[in-house]
Amino acid sequence: MLQILINTLIYSGEIGIIAVGVALSYSVLRFANFAHIQFAVVGAYLAFTLNQFLHCPLVLAVILAAVLTGGIAVTVDALVFSRLRDVTPEGKMIVSWGVALLLRSTMGAIFGSSSRVFGLEPASLQIGDAFFTSLDVVVVVVAILAMILLHFLLYSTRLGTALRALASNADLAATRGIPARRMVSLMWFICGAYAAIGGSLFALESQLAPNMDLIILLPVFASVTLGGLSNVFGAALGALGLSLAQNLLIGVDFGSWFSANSWSVPTQFRDFIAVGAMVIILLLRPYLARRRRAV
């Protein structure tokens, strides 16, 4: 049981850091940005390049990768998204896939399709009968720090006030003299940087390959949907809930309930839980919305 909780924390940390960015941009700009997944992949590749080819210390490499990916996100906004004001949310979603394809093929063209590993050898640790590594500890600590920092940014700074004003009513915010352009750029920087950190952690824990996007796509968007699409910390909680559900289902030995043979759900099926959770939430959504209104 402890092992399941630990695995839950690790996985939700990786996914959660990525997911909050999707929710943040959705809350301000009202469209689901599918290119966000590629920000994570790009960030991971940048961290890998800095670390393996340019011999930056890993921590510095990840920080630099976050800054660079933040810059890429800001650039994408300046070149593409900021010029799509009059396009419907559907149109923006489709364009975000255009950006995603472009980023994905760039990574594929530069790094090829084979997978790469950072080659870390973290120390093994043990609490009771639960095993984990020093890297796992780092992932969880970074995720928690990232959430605290984001909370501080959104609730204790002018940036946060401005973004929340923009999210609730863009026109009103503009008339109040909030520099929307600059705030939105800052928001994109945060999105890109967080995606890069999440992507790097994910790659550190497993491996780095261009098809990493397909692996994180469903859990990230399922977490955001669970949190209600536009709720930043809802997305983080969504990641936690989803991760718990996945690890419970995978970690529990269902076979022993019915027979002497041990059998649990194979790990490849964790994405089924992601989509399943998403579907259940969507089916319940009209009902939940009505409940909230009626209270």
Binding site: V80, R83, L84, V87, G91, I94, V95, W97, G98, V99, A100, L101, L102, L103, R104, S105, T106, G108, A109
Partner: peptide, 16 residues
């Protein structure tokens, strides 16, 4: 990969 990138670019440019 370049072909896929071109598709992405097409999606962006058409909407712009």
């Amino acid at each position: 990969n370049l072909r896929l990138g071109a598709y992405g670019l097409v999606l962006i440019l058409v909407f712009l």
